[in-house]
Amino acid sequence: MRTTLFGLCVGAVLLLAGVGLGTVGVTLLGGAGHAAPRPGPPPRPAGTAGAAAAGAPVTLGVQVVDTERPGALIVAVHVPGPGFTAGLVRGDVVVAFGAGRVAGTADLARAVTGARPGTRITLTVRHRTGAQQRVTVVPGVVV
């Protein structure tokens, strides 16, 4: 009985630790909580009633990490989400947000925080092959 109870407790701790480790990374929500965008209608442009006007956090719906080279490496893309809709994939590196260069995750987080939901932004991304591409993304809000 003791062994079974001990095994269950250890299993629960390991499971919870794995869940905690699995959420490590930077979720690009403009510096706010760890919520994912809910599926639904596209975000309203800034200045309209609703979540955008209430100051809800802005998101690209991607998780990024820093690398040795300039840019923010995308390690996960939320489906559905603005990044998925724009065609971003895991392994892409965001090197520019609009006209501004992105040196790392902090630069990208600042740029996303300053973006207006519903506004089209051009991102420059570097693919795993080394080729660069410009994609248009429409930042959304976390509801």
Rank of each mutant, 00 (worst) to 15 (best):
M1D: 12
R2T: 11
T3H: 12
T3L: 13
T4M: 10
L5T: 11
F6W: 10
F6H: 05
G7H: 08
C9W: 09
C9P: 02
G11P: 04
A12T: 13
L15A: 13
L15H: 09
L16W: 10
L16I: 13
V19K: 03
V19I: 15
L21T: 08
G22W: 09
T23V: 12
T23C: 08
G25T: 07
T27N: 11
T27I: 11
T27K: 13
L28R: 06
L28I: 01
G30F: 01
G33T: 11
H34L: 14
H34Q: 14
A36S: 13
A36T: 14
P39H: 07
P41C: 00
R44V: 01
P45L: 01
P45I: 05
A46L: 11
A46V: 10
A46I: 06
A49V: 10
A49E: 15
A53R: 11
A54F: 02
G55K: 05
V58W: 03
V58R: 12
T59K: 03
L60V: 00
V62R: 03
V62A: 08
Q63T: 12
Q63S: 15
V64R: 05
V64M: 07
V65S: 07
V65W: 05
E68M: 12
R69W: 10
R69E: 15
G71C: 08
L73E: 12
V79F: 10
P80F: 06
P80M: 09
G81C: 06
G81V: 04
G83F: 07
G83M: 08
F84A: 15
A86D: 05
A86N: 06
A86I: 02
L88A: 09
V89L: 12
V89E: 14
R90H: 09
R90N: 09
G91K: 06
D92Y: 03
V95A: 00
F97T: 06
F97E: 05
F97R: 08
G98I: 01
G100E: 14
G100R: 14
R101F: 07
V102M: 07
A103S: 13
A103R: 15
A103Y: 05
T105H: 06
A106W: 08
A106S: 13
L108K: 06
R110F: 01
R110E: 12
V112P: 00
G114S: 14
A115C: 01
P117H: 03
T119Y: 01
T119E: 13
T119C: 00
R120G: 08
T124C: 05
T124I: 02
V125E: 04
R126E: 14
R126Y: 06
R126V: 10
H127G: 12
A131P: 03
Q132T: 15
Q133F: 04
R134N: 11
V135I: 15
T136S: 10
V137H: 01
V137I: 14
P139K: 04
G140V: 00
G140L: 02
G140Y: 01
V141K: 02
V141N: 04
V143T: 14
V143F: 04
